[in-house]
């Protein structure tokens, strides 16, 4: 696998990191108007992620995982507190400013893949490279599709790819821009067990090889266990889980699936 990485990649223009913490949330909160007044989704979230570090965020449905991911990725803005990216204010930028910063440093993998249906696999991977103004988007995209094992599917449109293949294209699209930070929202949530396992494997391999920091939102405790840190969201608050509690959770999950 490492052999592929020996190809000299064209630069995608990713800036070098300047701060010690790559992503930082300071007392972040989010409320939305509800039928009985303000509804608090997230409260007092403090969180720091170093370059290259991986963190899993788990929690029951409705605990606010996707909301937190949206805030951290600058897709939404907090109602209190602040998010910093590479030591610089991120959540306080306007939408365009956040989009540009995101394009420079981040990439995404979604549960439902979100490939552009009318672009083929190669063009889907090229898209963020073209947005960044990368030098040889076609060459880079081909390389990454080869890296995820889809070199024979370059001209295929999403509708003709299986779920697992679509998520591979999404992974290639994410890593092609050589991001400093990858946000993954339930990346195996739409796949069967075997495919999910393979995609998880590929995700962590690519992550390790690229030295990318990872924020992974998942229900999959096995996947969460592979991250360096594990945060648990409960009723809008974030708790750091210790190694032992993760193990016991993983065991419980394994037992329940065995039954």
């Amino acid at each position: 696998m490492n052999k592929n990485l020996e190809i000299e990649l064209p630069s995608t223009g990713a800036p070098l990191l300047q701060a010690e913490s790559l992503l930082q949330a300071e007392s972040v909160g989010k409320t939305v108007p509800g039928p009985d007044g303000e509804l608090t989704l997230l409260e007092d979230i403090d969180f720091t992620l170093s370059p290259g570090q991986s963190v899993a965020i788990t929690g029951p449905s409705g605990s606010g995982k996707s909301t937190l991911l949206g805030l951290l990725a600058g897709l939404d803005t907090p109602t209190s507190g602040e998010v910093l990216l590479d030591g610089k204010p991120f959540s306080k930028l306007d939408e365009d400013g956040r989009a540009v910063r995101r394009g420079e440093l981040c990439a995404f993998v979604f549960q439902h893949f979100h490939l552009v249906n009318d672009l083929n696999a190669l063009e889907n991977v090229m898209l963020p490279l073209e947005l960044k103004g990368a030098a040889s988007p076609r060459k880079t995209a081909s390389h990454w599709l080869q890296r995820v094992g889809l070199e024979h599917r370059l001209k295929h449109f999403p509708a003709t790819l299986s779920g697992g293949e679509q998520q591979r294209v999404a992974l290639a699209r994410a890593f092609a821009v050589q991001p400093q930070l990858l946000f993954a929202d339930e990346p195996t949530g739409s796949l069967d067990h075997a495919n999910g396992g393979r995609i998880g494997e590929l995700l962590f391999d690519l992550n390790r090889e690229s030295g990318t920091a990872l924020v992974l939102v998942t229900h999959d405790q096995q996947l969460a266990k592979r991250c360096q840190r594990h945060l648990q969201l409960e009723e809008g608050r974030l708790f750091e889980r210790s190694e032992s509690s993760i193990e016991s959770l993983a065991e419980a999950a394994t037992e329940s699936s065995a039954q």
């Binding site: 989009a99 394009g103 963020p128 947005l131």
Partner: peptide, 10 residues
């Protein structure tokens, strides 16, 4: 999707 991938409003 374009916005998520870093596309600006312009």
């Amino acid at each position: 999707l374009l916005r998520t991938l870093g596309g600006n409003r312009a």
